[in-house]
Write a protein that binds this DNA or RNA. Structure first.
Length: 868
RNA sequence: GCGGGCGUGGCGGAAUGGUAGACGCAACGGACUUAAAAUCCGUUGGGGGUAACUCCGUGAGGGUUCGAGUCCCUCCGCCCGCACCA
C-alpha cells in the first residue's frame, strides 16, 4: 500500500459535500413532465428532542432509494417535515414549564441539524411543521368541507377520566386502571365528540386493499382484520321481566347456525338494558361500575379476567318460546361492536365456553365433525374445555340436524326473517364491520383547533373559511389541570358567525393522526394557498415508496387511506390510495445493562472486561438485561450524534443497511459499527491506489474475470436496490471490493488488469454512493471526475460480461448431495444423464441398484432416485 | 384475550421447493513491525475418520414431495398492534 495515502477524514469531507449539495440545490424538486417522477417518503418524525437510531435507519433507507432512483434518471421528490403536535410537548410544559411551541421548535432545530449531518438527499425547501398555522389552516378548511360533505358526525363516546387531575387520559396514561400522574382510579365519562365517518368507506377500504399489490401482505391482512367485515344476523329476543321499556334484546351473531347451542345472553356494561337493570339492583350497578374502571382500551378489557353478572332476566329463545336463556352482563362484551349484546354458544366459542364453565351454564354441542375420530375428539375437547369451531354437520338442533353449518345459517336466517315480533321481522341478515368511526376530538392544547363555534341559537356553526385559521392562543398556562384552551380567559368567547350573538369556540383540538393523514399531499405544494395544488399533486402523487415502522400498519395507514378518499370527495385530491408501495422497516435494538440494584445503565457507561461487564466509571459489575428495542426507559440508546462524530454519517448509514434485512429488527453493536468504519477506510485506500495507476488502458483477456465480477455486481446491486434488499446489495459490494483487492495486490499486473481495475473501482464507487454518498463524492473526485456523483448516471451492466456460460450443478442420489459437476449452461438431460451416471461418486452411491427416476432441474440440480 | 409477524453456526445473516451457512462480525493461526496499532493472508456448524470420506444439522414434533430453512398441521419462545403514544 502506498504510504502517501492519507486516512479518510469524514470530519472534513462530510460537511464539504453537504455544503456542495446545498449550494447546488441538488435535491430541490421541480415538476418536469419530460421525466418520470419518483416520490420517496419516510414517515415524518415527531420532534421529541433528538433523533434516535430508528430515525437513522428509516431515513437512510429512504435516502438510498431516493439517490438510487435519482441516478437512474427519475425526477425525485424526497421531502421532510415535522409531525409537530402532540402530548409530549404538553407534558414538557407541565413538568418543566416550557411552552409547547418553544419546546417543539427547539427540538425541530436540533433534529433538523442532526438530519442534515446525515447527508440526506432531502428537499429542505419543502419543509413544514404541522403546528404551523400555515399548515393547519388548510386542515381546518378541509374539515369544514368534510362537514358539508356529510363526512363528519358529532356523537357521544367514552374517555378515560382522571377524577383527581380532572383530565382526560390517553390509554397509555392509564396504568393498571389508574392515572399515571395522580394514581387515582380511572373513571369513564361520556363526552360529545367529533367523528370522521371512516365507516362510510369500510367496504371500499377493504376492497381496495386488493389494489395495493406493493404493500406487505401482512399489513394488508392486518387492515383486513381490523376492518373486520362479517356477515351475520341481527336478531331480536323477547325479554321476560325486563325493566320498563325493555321488552326485547337485539343481538348480532355470525353463528345463527349454533342457535340451538345457546346457553346464555351477554350484554355490555354500558348496554341500555344493563343501565336500566342496574337501577333496581345495587349489586349489578356495582359490577357495571367495576367494568367501567377498566378504562376504554380494548386490550385491557380483553386481557382482564372474564367476569359476568347474572341480571336475573331471561330471554326467550327465538326458535322455541318455551326455552328461557339467562341474561348476563359481561365485562368482555363491547358496546361498540354489533349491538353490544350476544348469545353465548359455549360448545363452539372458546370465550363462551370459559364463561359457561365458570358460571355453571349448560354446554350443548351442535356441530359435529363428519369424520368419526374427529367427532370423538371434538366432543372430548368440549367436555375438557376446548371449544370446537370447525365445520361438520348440525346435531342436537331439531330441524337443522344433518345440515352443514352454512346451510343451517341460511335456514335459520330464512325462517327468522319471515317470523315477526312487534310487526317487524325477528331477524335480518346484516353485514357488520368491526371498524368504528374515527373519534378526532382531543381535550388538549397542543393540537389543531377544531374550527367550529357553539351557539345557543344556531347550534354548531363552522367557522367561515375567511376567518381561518383559528389560531391556537400562545398565552396559556399549564398550572391548572385540564385543557388550557378551556380555561383560557378570552379565547373561546366569540360571536356566532351566523347570528352574531355570544357563542363559544370548540375547545377540543384534533387528533394528531389527522395532521399525518394528509402531509404526503401537502409536500407536493407546501407553499400553496390551497391545501393541495391540483397540478402539483397530479404530477407527484401517489407516493411511489413509503417507508416507516410496522407499528403504523393499521391506524396511520388506514386513516391516511380514508383521508385521501375524503379529500377526493371534497375535490382536494384526485386519487384515493396515497401510497403505491409500502415498506415497513424493523426496529433498532440494543443490549441492556443493569446494575445489581436494578438500575439501567447507558451503553456508553458499560464496558466489557475479562471479568464481565462493569460500569465504566464506578467499576460496579453489570448484568446483561437482554436485547430490546432502544428506549429511554431502559437507557439502551446510542446517540446518533456520537456515532456520526466518531465514525461519520456514511459509516452509520452503511452499518444500518448491512447484514440485517431491512424489515427485521437490527441490533446496534459497536463491533459492527467499527467494522463498517474499517470498510470505509479500505475503500478509500483502494480508490486512491487505483487512481494512482493513472487513466484507463485497453481492456484485454487478462482483466476479463474482474470485469465480469464488476458487471455482475452492477446487475445484482441494481436488482437488490430496486427491491429494497439493502443487506444483499452490501454483501455484493463486499464481494466486488474483495475482487478488486485481490487484483490490486497482484504482483506484475498488466495493462488489461489495470484497465479492469479502473472500471471495477468506478463501478464500485457509483454503486455504494446511495449508501455512503460523501465518501463516494470524495472518491469520485480522487478518480479525476469533475462532475459529482450526484449528477452522474447509474452504471449499466454489459450483458456480454454478465452472461454465464458454465454452471456448477449438484448431483443428488435419493435427495442426498453426492457430487457436483461443471457443465455448459443449458445442458440437457440427454447430455447430463450419461455423464452423471458415469461418475464414480454416483455409482458408489447407487451400489448397483436400478435407477427409477432421473430428475433434471436445468442448470441447478440432478437427482437420481433409486429403490432402497 | 384477539389480530399479525419472526425463529438458520459463537453473533448478524444468505439461500425462485433444488449444493444450507454467500457476505459481514467475532475468534484463532500466520505475514509485516524493535513493539503496538493499522493492514494483508489463512482457518472457522457439530460428530467420526490418518485420509478418501461419512453421519448429524435451519426453535420442537409430525406431514406433503424425487427433494423442505422454504409448503401444511400441532406445540414452544420472542416481537408488533388493539382505536386518546407517535
Amino acid at each position: 500500500m502506498s504510504a502517501s495515502i492519507e486516512r479518510y477524514n469524514h470530519r472534513t469531507v462530510e460537511p464539504k459535500w453537504q455544503a456542495h449539495w446545498t449550494s447546488a440545490r441538488s435535491f430541490e424538486a421541480r415538476e418536469d413532465t419530460s421525466r418520470p417522477k419518483y416520490y420517496v417518503l419516510e414517515m415524518f418524525p415527531y420532534p421529541s428532542g433528538r433523533i434516535h437510531m430508528g430515525h437513522v435507519r428509516n431515513y437512510t433507507m429512504g435516502d438510498v432509494i431516493a439517490r438510487f432512483r435519482r441516478a437512474a434518471g427519475y425526477n425525485v421528490l424526497h421531502p421532510m417535515g415535522w409531525d409537530a403536535f402532540g402530548m409530549p410537548a404538553e407534558n414538557a410544559a407541565i413538568e418543566r414549564g416550557v411552552h409547547p411551541k418553544a419546546w417543539t421548535y427547539e427540538n425541530i432545530a436540533t433534529m433538523r441539524k442532526q438530519l442534515k449531518s446525515m447527508g440526506l438527499s432531502l428537499d429542505w425547501s419543502r419543509e413544514f411543521a404541522t403546528c404551523d398555522p400555515e399548515y393547519y389552516r388548510h386542515e381546518q378548511a378541509m374539515f369544514i368541507d368534510f362537514m358539508e360533505k356529510g363526512l363528519v358526525e358529532r356523537k357521544s363516546s367514552k374517555v378515560n377520566w382522571d377524577p383527581v387531575d380532572h383530565t382526560v387520559l390517553a390509554n397509555e396514561q392509564v396504568i393498571d386502571g389508574r392515572g399515571w400522574r395522580s394514581g387515582a382510579l380511572v373513571e369513564q365519562r361520556e363526552l360529545s365528540q367529533w367523528f370522521l365517518k371512516i365507516t362510510s368507506c369500510s367496504q371500499d377500504l377493504l376492497d381496495s386493499l386488493d389494489r395495493l399489490g406493493n404493500w406487505p401482505e401482512k399489513v394488508r391482512l392486518m387492515q383486513r382484520n381490523w376492518i373486520g367485515r362479517s356477515e351475520g344476523l341481527s336478531l331480536r329476543w323477547v325479554l321476560e321481566g325486563g325493566p320498563a321499556g325493555h321488552t326485547e334484546l337485539e343481538i348480532y351473531t355470525t353463528r345463527p347456525d349454533t342457535l340451538f347451542g345457546a346457553s346464555f345472553m351477554a350484554i355490555a356494561a354500558d348496554h341500555p338494558l344493563a343501565r336500566a337493570a342496574s337501577e333496581g339492583n345495587a349489586e349489578l350497578a356495582r359490577f357495571c361500575e367495576q367494568c367501567r374502571r377498566m378504562g376504554t382500551s380494548v386490550a385491557a378489557i380483553e386481557t382482564a379476567e372474564k367476569l359476568g353478572f347474572n341480571t336475573g332476566l331471561f330471554a326467550q329463545h327465538p326458535l322455541d318460546p318455551a326455552w328461557k336463556v339467562p341474561v348476563y352482563v359481561a365485562n368482555f362484551i363491547l358496546m361498540d361492536y354489533g349491538t353490544g349484546a350476544i348469545f353465548g354458544c359455549p360448545a363452539h366459542d372458546q370465550r363462551d365456553l370459559d364463561f359457561a364453565r365458570k358460571y355453571g351454564l349448560p354446554v350443548t354441542q351442535v356441530v359435529q365433525p363428519t369424520d368419526e375420530s374427529a367427532a370423538a375428539a371434538a366432543a372430548a375437547g368440549i367436555a375438557a374445555g376446548t371449544a370446537y369451531d370447525g365445520d361438520g354437520v348440525m346435531i342436537n338442533s331439531r330441524f337443522l340436524d344433518g345440515l352443514a353449518p352454512e346451510a343451517a345459517f341460511a335456514a335459520v336466517a330464512t325462517r327468522l326473517e319471515k317470523a315477526t315480533l312487534g310487526n317487524r321481522p325477528v331477524a335480518a341478515r346484516k353485514v357488520n364491520f368491526r371498524l368504528r368511526d374515527w373519534g378526532v376530538s382531543r381535550q388538549r392544547y397542543w393540537g389543531c383547533p377544531i374550527p367550529v363555534v357553539h351557539c345557543e341559537t344556531c347550534g354548531i356553526v363552522p367557522v367561515p373559511k375567511k376567518d381561518l385559521p383559528v389560531r391556537l392562543p400562545e398565552d396559556v398556562s399549564f398550572d391548572k389541570p385540564g385543557n388550557p384552551l378551556a380555561h383560557h380567559p378570552t379565547w373561546k368567547h366569540v360571536n356566532c358567525p351566523k347570528c352574531g350573538s355570544k357563542a363559544t369556540r370548540e375547545t377540543d383540538t384534533f387528533d394528531t393522526f389527522i395532521d399525518s393523514s394528509w402531509y404526503y399531499a401537502r409536500f407536493c405544494s407546501p407553499h400553496a394557498d390551497v391545501p393541495v395544488d391540483a397540478a402539483a399533486a397530479r404530477y407527484w402523487m401517489g407516493v411511489d415508496q413509503y417507508i416507516g415502522g410496522i407499528e403504523h400498519a393499521i391506524l396511520h395507514l388506514l386513516y391516511s387511506r380514508f383521508y385521501a378518499r375524503a379529500m377526493q370527495a371534497t375535490g382536494h385530491l384526485h386519487m384515493d390510495e396515497p401510497f403505491a408501495s409500502l415498506f415497513t422497516q424493523g426496529m433498532v435494538v440494543h443490549e441492556t445493562y443493569k446494575t445489581e440494584t436494578g438500575e439501567w445503565v447507558l451503553p456508553s457507561d458499560a464496558s466489557k472486561t475479562d471479568a464481565g461487564w462493569v460500569h465504566a466509571r464506578t467499576g460496579e459489575p453489570l448484568i446483561l438485561g437482554g436485547i430490546e428495542k432502544m428506549s429511554k426507559s431502559k437507557k439502551n440508546v446510542v446517540d446518533p450524534d456520537t456515532i456520526i462524530e466518531s465514525y461519520g454519517a456514511d459509516t452509520a448509514r452503511w452499518f444500518m443497511l448491512s447484514d440485517t434485512p431491512p424489515e427485521r429488527d437490527i441490533e446496534w453493536t459497536d463491533a459492527g459499527a467499527a467494522g463498517a468504519w474499517r470498510f470505509t477506510q479500505r475503500l478509500w485506500r483502494m480508490v486512491n491506489e487505483t487512481a494512482e495507476l493513472g487513466g484507463a488502458g485497453q481492456h484485454d483477456a487478462s482483466g476479463l474475470a474482474l470485469r465480469q465480477v464488476a458487471h455482475r455486481t452492477i446487475a445484482a446491486v441494481t436488482d437488490d436496490l430496486s427491491n429494497l434488499r439493502f443487506n444483499r446489495a452490501i454483501a455484493r459490494l463486499y464481494e466486488l471490493a474483495n475482487a478488486v483487492g485481490t487484483v490490486l495486490q497482484k504482483q506484475g499486473r498488466n495493462g488489461g488488469e489495470d484497465a479492469a481495475l479502473r472500471e471495477a473501482v468506478e463501478a464500485l464507487v457509483l454503486l455504494f454512493a446511495p449508501m455512503m454518498p460523501h465518501l463516494a463524492e470524495e472518491c469520485w473526485q480522487v478518480l479525476g471526475h469533475t462532475v459529482p456523483v450526484v449528477d452522474t448516471p447509474w452504471p449499466k451492466a454489459d450483458p456480454a460480461l454478465t452472461a454465464v456460460n458454465e454452471v456448477t450443478i449438484a448431483i443428488q442420489v435419493n435427495g442426498k448431495r453426492r457430487d457436483e459437476i461443471k457443465v455448459p449452461k443449458g445442458a440437457t438431460r440427454e447430455v447430463l444423464e450419461p455423464m452423471v451416471l458415469a461418475l464414480e461418486s454416483v455409482t458408489r452411491a447407487l451400489d448397483g441398484k436400478p435407477v427409477s427416476k432421473f430428475i433434471v432441474v436445468p442448470d441447478r440440480i440432478v437427482n437420481i432416485v433409486c429403490a432402497n
